[in-house]
């Protein structure tokens, strides 16, 4: 059965960049979200076993999404992909239980390594 994966980013180019970086032979079903609320809706609907999450988004930002998931002990594996790469952002993301913090522009090899580390591929 394909793994449900959600890509949450308000930029279409960045959602595309994530799609492109995913291993071609990985059996997944992709949902796209353009803000934090949509990302949480995807989690609630069981469409996000893995969530690729941007931090700066309208409505609800990535920190808000992480906080909600953290408080609700969600089992979603969150991989943050962010343009804001300041130490402060990384610290907060780590404390909210994200699995990894990747920098934009996304490096496809780095992403594959992360998926391998978590045992997804």
């Amino acid at each position: 059965m394909p793994i449900p994966v959600t890509i949450a980013d308000d930029s279409m180019m960045s959602r595309k960049a994530v799609r492109r970086a995913l291993p071609a032979d990985w059996d997944i079903e992709i949902t796209e979200a353009t803000n934090g609320k949509q990302a949480l809706a995807a989690v609630e609907a069981g469409k996000a076993e893995v969530l690729f999450l941007d931090l700066t988004m309208p409505e609800l930002d990535g920190f808000g999404v992480l906080r909600y998931l953290h408080e609700h002990h969600a089992k979603t594996i969150v991989i943050v992909i962010s343009a804001d790469i300041q130490p402060e952002a990384k610290k907060l993301v780590d404390s909210l239980g994200a699995f990894r913090f990747l920098h934009k522009p996304l490096n496809p090899e780095q992403l594959s390594q992360v998926l391998f580390d978590v045992g997804l591929i």
Partner: peptide
């Protein structure tokens, strides 16, 4: 689409700039 891309490229560049200053 081009505007979205340009905005995102600027986001990434300013993120790098802010990181050096931070």
């Amino acid at each position: 689409e081009q505007r979205d891309a340009l905005q995102e490229l600027m986001n990434i560049s300013m993120g790098q700039a802010a990181n050096s200053l931070a």
